[in-house]
């Protein structure tokens, strides 16, 4: 039935059942709501009266989201308490491909961790060896360390040196690449960082996948606002192969 195409996009109500704070600008919300989403897919979260934004689920049953305070929308999200209700629609987009990957390296910059934490668990469940490089500005922005350490070897960098290696995750990745071989590198973080990771992948001739973010209005492939060149982040992405990104001028402008 074609009509179900419409109905499956309706918001479902999701009540907040737990909120945890990490430092001043990261909160992890748990919702009374479950959904089926592959690692790398996203959902749209609606705050009535405020708007809606895309987020990567860090757990699906119950739904969990990691949110970094960035603008008005996330500032309003930080005011939410247990018992408050939001709307959720999705999942949307194409997730990561991980079949036949035996040795993986995941590279998360900042809140980019949200798109990768479930992937690390899934890869590990599939029997892959996982190295996880995770860079943040300062120690209190680190989340999910325990979850990651259960399934991967973790390498942490902080820009202020308050935890792990002082510096950026790019430096950590370079060191790993000097001695290790991977079937695929998975990356999510600020776009300039992803551009650097893509360049390293090209240099070492390693396959790669990146989870991208663009301002989204419809999430169903009609409004065109999330276009990256002539790809739509909501439908063709948000995960793109390094090979695809290398051919998109609009991604490389950050170089």
């Amino acid at each position: 039935m074609l009509t179900s195409r419409f109905e499956r996009n309706r918001f479902v109500g999701a009540k907040i059942i737990n909120v945890q704070s990490y430092g001043a600008d990261i909160k992890i919300f748990e919702f009374e709501c479950k959904l089926k989403a592959k690692p790398g897919q996203f959902i749209m979260l609606w705050l009535p009266g405020i708007g809606e934004r895309p987020f990567s689920p860090t757990k699906t049953n119950p739904l969990e989201l990691a949110v970094k305070k960035r603008g008005l929308f996330t500032k309003k999200m930080f005011e939410l308490k247990v018992g408050d209700c939001v709307g959720i629609r999705g999942p949307y987009g194409k997730g990561f491909k991980y079949e036949n990957v035996k040795h993986a390296c995941l590279v998360a910059g900042g809140i980019g961790i949200a798109a990768l934490v479930r992937l690390a668990e899934t890869l590990s469940n599939n029997g892959a060896m996982v190295d996880f490089v995770y860079g943040v500005r300062k120690r209190d922005q680190l989340v999910f360390l325990e979850r990651i350490e259960k399934v991967a070897e973790l390498f942490v960098s902080t820009e202020d040196g308050s935890f792990g290696k002082k510096g950026t995750c790019i430096e950590l990745l370079k060191r790993l690449l000097a001695s290790k071989r991977y079937d695929c590198i998975y990356c999510c973080g600020p776009e300039p960082m992803m551009v650097q990771v893509l360049a390293l992948c090209k240099h070492y001739n390693i396959k790669s996948q990146f989870s991208l973010e663009r301002r989204m209005k419809c999430a169903v492939g009609i409004c065109g606002h999330c276009a990256l060149g002539s790809k739509l982040v909501c439908k063709d992405g948000p995960v793109f192969s390094g090979k695809t990104l290398a051919s998109i001028r609009e991604f490389m402008v950050h170089e």
């Binding site: 419409f6 996009n9 708007g51 409004c223």
Partner: peptide, 12 residues
């Protein structure tokens, strides 16, 4: 502002 689209069983 968003939401700019709303869905129902027979359309948008």
């Amino acid at each position: 502002d968003t939401p700019n689209v709303a869905f129902f069983e027979a359309g948008v």
